[in-house]
Simulated assay, not measured.
Amino acid sequence: PINPDNPNGPKWPDGTDKNSLTKTVNQTIHYQYVGGQTAAPDKTDSTTFDHQVEVDKVTGKIVKDDGWSAENDKTSFDAKVSPVIAGYTASQASSTAVTGLTQDSQDNVQTIVYAPNAETANVTYIDDTTGKTLSTKDLSGAYGTTDPYRTNDTIAGYENAGYKLVSDNYPTSGVTYNEDSTVQSFQVHLTHSTTLTNETKIVTETIHYVYKDGTTAHDDYVAKPVEFTREVSTDAVTGEKTYGAWSAAQSFDAVKSPELKGYTADKAQIDKQTVNGDSKDLAFTVTYTK
């Protein structure tokens, strides 16, 4: 009844209840990752349309229809800026604006999808012996993922070539791309392996005794040889050898020339001779003259 105190009086005509005279249009914007998981809370909006009519309270008839109108004259949904999520790029910087809404418009639903950014990293292999870069490995992957690359095989290859590992700061479980727009850099330092050996050198002294015509005047004098040693370091990468110092210098004693009856030697003796590892074999000749 229009008049609650008169239950048998005129009734509100059909279509004048609140649900019939009010229509709300809703907007929902979803923010999702590529896999469908929620990336950020939904953003919502709404506008309400009212239908105004005038009813004759005596007859219960509609006498005037003022039509539909939007509350606050809101007939559109503005574009809403998409949230910024580190490491991801939204499919749209903002939602699409919707205009011309009426009471007959359907609810508006939009979905903004976030795709992971492409990130990069690199690993540099350095020869500490020469200071030069041996090689560089460039890596890339989606934000939030872990790269399957490991340094083990490359290091093993260099070790087979004669290198020795000094340090490796690349993560043992692989680099995780968690620094957006930053190139993550790692270094593997190697040095040349070396092999140490000992080198020996013998130095001899021989004295020949001859007549002026070159024939033998006396048996040669052959001193006891002296031996020198030094350490040799061989670069396992280049094969280059580095030599240490020879062992201490040594001497051959002075040697008197034999006396031959009727002959005079041009050298009464061969003096004491001091030699080292760089010395050549010594050879002297004593000549006898009648």
Rank of each mutant, 00 (worst) to 15 (best):
N3Y: 13
N8V: 08
N8K: 13
G9H: 06
K11Q: 10
P13T: 12
P13E: 14
D14M: 09
T16Y: 11
K18Q: 15
L21R: 11
T24V: 14
N26D: 13
I29V: 13
Y31V: 00
Y31N: 00
Q32G: 09
G35A: 05
T38M: 06
A40L: 09
A40M: 06
D42G: 00
T47Y: 04
T48I: 07
H51R: 09
Q52H: 03
Q52K: 08
V53D: 04
D56G: 03
D56P: 03
I62P: 03
V63Q: 08
D65G: 03
D66K: 11
W68V: 02
N72M: 07
N72R: 12
S76E: 13
F77G: 00
S82N: 02
P83E: 00
P83H: 01
I85T: 02
G87T: 10
Y88F: 15
Y88K: 14
Y88T: 04
A90T: 07
Q92R: 05
T96E: 15
L101P: 11
Q103P: 02
D104H: 11
S105M: 09
Q106D: 14
N108S: 08
T111S: 14
I112N: 00
Y114E: 00
A118W: 01
V123W: 00
Y125L: 06
Y125D: 02
D127K: 06
D127Y: 04
T130Q: 08
T133Q: 13
S135W: 06
S135A: 12
T145P: 06
T145Y: 08
P148Y: 02
Y149Q: 00
R150E: 02
T151H: 04
D153V: 01
T154H: 08
Y158D: 11
N160T: 10
N160C: 03
A161M: 11
G162T: 11
K164F: 07
K164R: 15
K164H: 09
K164Q: 13
L165N: 01
V166S: 13
S167I: 07
S167H: 14
D168W: 10
T172N: 06
V175T: 15
E179G: 01
S181P: 07
T182E: 07
T182A: 09
Q184N: 09
Q184R: 10
F186G: 05
V188C: 05
T191C: 05
T191I: 03
H192L: 13
H192N: 10
S193C: 03
T195R: 13
T200M: 03
K201W: 04
T204L: 14
E205F: 01
D213F: 15
G214I: 12
T216W: 11
P225E: 10
T229N: 14
R230E: 12
V232H: 12
T234Q: 01
D235H: 05
E240Q: 13
K241V: 10
A248T: 08
A249T: 12
Q250A: 15
D253Q: 05
D253N: 12
A254C: 09
V255G: 02
P258Q: 01
T264V: 07
T264K: 12
K267S: 07
K267A: 10
I270G: 03
I270P: 04
K272A: 09
K272I: 13
N276R: 05
G277C: 06
D281W: 00
L282N: 04
L282Y: 01
T287F: 08
